[in-house]
Every structure is written in structure tokens, then in C-alpha cells.
Design a protein around this nucleic acid. Sequence first.
DNA 1: CGGCATCCAAGTAGATACTG
DNA 2: CAGTATCTACTTGGATGCCG
Lengths: 116, 116
Amino acid sequence: MKKDKRWERIPGCSIEAALNVIGGKWKGVFLFHLLDGTMRYNEFSKLAVGASPRLIVKQLRELEEDGLIERKVYAVVPPKVEYSLTSEGKSLKPILKSLSGWGDQWIDKRPWTLNE
Amino acid sequence: MKKDKRWERIPGCSIEAALNVIGGKWKGVFLFHLLDGTMRYNEFSKLAVGASPRLIVKQLRELEEDGLIERKVYAVVPPKVEYSLTSEGKSLKPILKSLSGWGDQWIDKRPWTLNE
DNA sequence: CGGCATCCAAGTAGATACTG
DNA sequence: CAGTATCTACTTGGATGCCG
């Protein structure tokens, strides 16, 4: 977590504060899928193709530190951990939906294509 | 620009495609301020306190490559360059506003404070 | 004014192996 | 299952100086 002093006085900083929270490499995807309900570590790892456990955990921990998701550990064997959105996290719903919609459109319109 | 192959099949990838575009260190701020009209390089540098010219230019170039902003060079002395949003860039307006609003709220609610 | 080139430091992500 | 540890590679960003 970067508690960067500069957010204090830059005009438009709230934009960056927001992006700082959801802009991590997989955070948007994780949050988006959490809109549909609780997820387990294993599901995230299937989602984040190519990402190492290290990174997945890091993204999840940061979201947790930011109070957007909750991590619930069950004392069972085998271990079970569930991640879910907090109310703060749920407040991102309209934004995540908008981003998803815009991204979808943009993939078609963007000036470059994959495999070029 | 990273034309990352993985966007092709990951569910929720449109979220990341969108974040990939606006998630750069200063891109959100730049885009947000461009909503109010054209900006010049000098204005960006005042906005991005502590950022090196190198980074500022890089962010602007990437936004340009992504077709979100337009760079207009006037052949005058001293040089004058104006940046403005393309129609694609303008389509981000509701999202940028939402992000700004959410970020504003979140700055008050977030679990940590500055200068801690 | 509005950059670019070069070099270097630091942070970030990946690979791999291992564990409670 | 749900991670941790370690080590390495890569990317990103800052500093500085120069140019049209």
C-alpha cells in the first residue's frame, strides 16, 4: 500500500486515489468477479491465467487492506478460505460495470489489434 | 503499448482492457482534466507534481496511441502543442466522473490515513 | 516551450520449490 | 487447499543534459 502524500493537494487526485485502489494488475478482474459472490483462492488462480501465486496473494491482500474485500478462513481440513466484497467493495459495482462495458466496446474500436 | 495476448480469453478481461488504458500513473488525471478542454504540455507538468518530463510524455504518447487524445503541433515560435480528447476519449467522461466521485468518498472512508 | 536521449536506481512480477 | 519463500528478470521511473 502506497500512502502517497501527493494525493493531498493535486487537483483530480480523487481519480488517482480510485485508480490506485482498483488499478492493480488483477484487482479489477477480481473485484468484478466478486460481484457474483464469494470466491476462493483456487478460483482466482484459474481466473488469473499466468499469474504466480505470489502476485495473486498480493493483489488480494492489498484489496483487503483497502477494505474492499473480506477474507474469511474456515478452520477445517482441507483449508478453506472465502473472499467476498465488503460494502465498500460493493459500492464499486456501477463503476466496475461501466468499465467492463467501456472496455468491451473499446476492444473493438481500439487503433491496434492483437497479434499484429 | 502492450498488446497482451491474454486479453483474448480471460473472463472479465474487458475490465482489464479498460484499466490498462486509463490505469497509468497519471492517465486518469490527465484525461479528467482534458474533460475541461485542451491542455498544453506545461499544464500537465504542473499537474503531475514530481513527475519527470520523461514520464509525462510517455503517458501522453500512450494515450495518443490508444486513440484517446489528440496531439496538435503548431508551427510557431515558441513551439505550441495542444492536447485534446478524441471522441473515444470523451466517451470515458461518465466513467471518469464516477471514478472521481468514488475516489472522493473513499479518501474519507479508507481504512488508513495519510501521514500515519 | 516542449520535448528527447542516456544512464541508472528501485520497485514489480515471474519461476520454482516447499509447507501447514 | 491455500498459500509462503527465495531468487531472478523485467519494467518503470527519476536525474540529468541537450535540442529544435
